[in-house]
């Protein structure tokens, strides 16, 4: 091929790639750049003047008690939700997968919390957990736990939110695990049966669990991200209280950015949140990926 023709082809190729690249630039990369830029300023929403403050926002962040508490709360929340979201979703999927006629019903039932917006469902939860009117509180009283106010007890509120978060995410993970289960060739179970696998645990350990590896990795990463971004239940049910025990990263970020209008500070917080999410995802993918893909 001659040189001019090669150049023409390269130009044409670039022209084809341009629209997609422009969109990526405008929709994904530019906002990220704007976020990074904002995070090194003292910009406040509506302010006329902007000053570069370098890394002051970040320095302030790590000295900020509220931020540190929100970080701690968020990690606690993730640590509580994640195992339940993965193993709960897997457990439900295993049970539902074995159903034949009732499978469709269970799939819909478990998936309902995913389709229902959490803000709307939170009002239901608020009623359910109401210290004097709610059935949950009544049940706890009847079981002899005395008067328990799940949302207003600083030692219980975060755990309660985590349970609600779990309630919502399990159905979604169940669907993913169901898809994973359906993709396992029946031959493998039959080969295992002839090899000598007789019990459920045997089949699970030899075939199901390893074959679900890619699904489990995906579920773990998406559940981590979902849990990290816990926000709506906090806003609707506790507003970070009591005593800041349910202040999470995203809630504090929302307060700084949209209640106190400290946009620059909130941007720095967002960068930190993003960094955590990216780091976690890379870490999980790196660690698990090597063990789950066999092809």
């Amino acid at each position: 091929m001659t040189a001019p023709r090669q150049r023409a082809e390269a130009r044409a190729g670039a022209a084809f790639a341009l629209p997609a690249f422009a969109l990526i630039l405008a929709l994904l990369l530019a906002p990220l750049a704007a976020l990074l830029a904002l995070s090194v300023t003292d910009y406040r929403l509506g302010a006329m003047a902007v000053r570069l403050v370098g890394l002051d926002n970040y320095a302030a962040l790590f000295a900020d008690e509220v931020f540190q508490r929100s970080l701690r709360n968020t990690f606690l929340y993730v640590a509580f939700v994640l195992p339940g979201a993965v193993f709960g979703g897997l457990g439900v999927a295993l049970l539902v997968h074995a159903r034949r006629r009732s499978r469709a019903f269970y799939e819909v039932a478990y998936f309902l919390p995913v389709t229902a917006t959490l803000v709307a469902m939170a009002t239901v939860w608020q009623f359910m957990l109401h210290p004097s009117l709610g059935p949950v509180s009544a049940l706890l009283r009847a079981l002899g736990f005395g008067d328990v106010d799940l949302l207003n007890d600083p030692s219980l509120a975060l755990g309660t939110l985590a349970l609600i978060g779990l309630w919502q995410v399990i159905g979604f993970n169940m669907v993913l695990f169901l898809a994973g289960l359906s993709a396992i060739p029946r031959d493998l179970y039959e080969a295992a049966a002839l090899d000598g696998a007789r019990s459920g645990p045997d089949r699970f350990l030899r075939v199901t669990w390893p074959m679900l590896g890619p699904t489990t990795m995906f579920v773990t990463i998406t559940s981590t991200i979902t849990a990290f971004k816990v926000f709506d239940t906090v806003v609707v049910l506790t507003r970070g209280g009591p005593l800041g025990s349910t202040e999470t990263l995203l809630y504090v970020l929302y307060l700084e950015g949209f209640q106190y209008f400290r946009t620059g500070y909130a941007a720095a917080m967002t960068v930190v949140l993003l960094a955590f999410l990216v780091l976690l995802s890379i870490l999980q993918a790196r660690v698990i990926d090597r063990k789950v893909h066999y092809a």
């Binding site: 060739p185 039959e190 080969a191 074959m211």
Partner: peptide, 21 residues
């Protein structure tokens, strides 16, 4: 008797090898 106790082995069309092993 379950398959494992029939003292037979089977070779499958797909081979049915455990891909993770």
């Amino acid at each position: 008797l379950p398959p494992s106790e029939r003292d037979v082995a089977m070779v499958f069309q797909s081979y049915a090898l455990y891909p993770h092993m």
